[in-house]
């Protein structure tokens, strides 16, 4: 392979990636517009969304609470020890509000849901494509963006927002136990510290961030699943591509949110 053809292949690869990204974002913005348009919502959409919330959040709830309590307590316990060591006790509130509520809660919830529901949705779509079920819907004039994408995206967005908030509340509550043990802090002092550190915009930031995570960890698996080939062998490939891109999307959203927060 000479230098020119090598450069050509690099260029072709880059253009291919760009086209793929362009298509993905184009479709994402089309789906997002439908998300905002009331006419996209049918009683059927709500019914499917409710079922999806059941699978995504309610079925996961027990495990999620255990993970929140165990992981949250360990994390907060260790960090409070470090805070005490370096003498920054006065900043417990800022740490819990800034790190746990704004960063850890959405990302932990997102990772858990992406691993569980994101992969399931991706495989479901790819199998539907291979079984020609997507063609069947198209034949009957059922728009897959409205029927398949919209309710699932809405459901996961709602689930991520609610579970993130639940995670933040559980971890903050376990922080109360550790503050009492490590700093001999009363309930009143602790809640006062946390409340003073929480700014009202944190609620908005958390909801927007969790919703953005929810959108992309559902949209990307749906997109890659629905674009799989007709062979059953295309299913694992579609799941693999979808999930890798979900991971990339999570990192990008996290970076963007950090940039937005500190700018």
């Amino acid at each position: 392979m000479n230098a020119v053809s090598w450069i050509e292949s690099v260029g072709a690869g880059a253009l291919g990636r760009w086209r793929e990204l362009h298509q993905l974002l184009g479709f994402a913005s089309a789906v997002f517009r439908r998300l905002l348009s009331p006419s996209s919502y049918r009683p059927l959409t709500v019914e499917i969304a409710v079922t999806q919330i059941y699978f995504t959040a309610v079925q996961l709830l027990g495990f999620f609470i255990v993970v929140s309590v165990v992981f949250g307590s360990l994390f907060i316990g260790m960090t409070l020890f470090v805070i005490k060591e370096i003498g920054l006790t006065g900043y417990i509130g800022d740490f819990i509000a800034g790190v746990v509520v704004l960063e850890m809660a959405p990302i932990m919830t997102t990772l858990l849901i992406a691993l569980r529901s994101g992969s399931a949705i991706n495989a479901e779509m790819a199998v539907m494509k291979a079984n020609r079920e997507l063609d069947a819907l198209e034949a009957f004039g059922v728009d897959i963006a409205n029927y398949l994408f919209l309710p699932r995206i809405v459901a996961v967005m709602v689930s991520v927002v609610l579970l993130s908030a639940l995670f933040a509340i559980i971890v903050t509550a376990s922080g109360l136990v550790f503050s009492a043990i490590i700093f001999d802090m009363s309930f009143n002092t602790y809640t006062e510290l946390i409340a003073k550190a929480i700014e009202y915009r944190y609620f908005t930031i958390m909801v927007v961030k969790s919703a953005a995570f929810g959108f992309f960890i559902t949209f990307i698996p749906l997109y890659y699943g629905s674009r799989a080939g007709y062979q059953l062998t295309a299913v694992p490939v579609a799941v693999l591509r979808g999930m890798v891109n979900v991971f990339i999307a999570i990192i990008i959203i996290e970076v963007l949110s950090l940039v937005a927060r500190f700018l």
């Binding site: 009683p43 059927l44 539907m128 079984n131 079920e133 063609d135 069947a136 034949a139 009957f140 059922v142």
Partner: peptide
């Protein structure tokens, strides 16, 4: 044979789906 039913829905929901979607019928 090339236009299958949706395998993750019951018979009832496969049939109901068309009207629920096109005619926006309630449950």
């Amino acid at each position: 044979a090339d236009i299958p039913l949706l395998s993750n829905l019951s018979v009832f929901r496969n049939i109901a789906l068309i009207r629920q979607y096109h005619e926006r019928l309630g449950r």
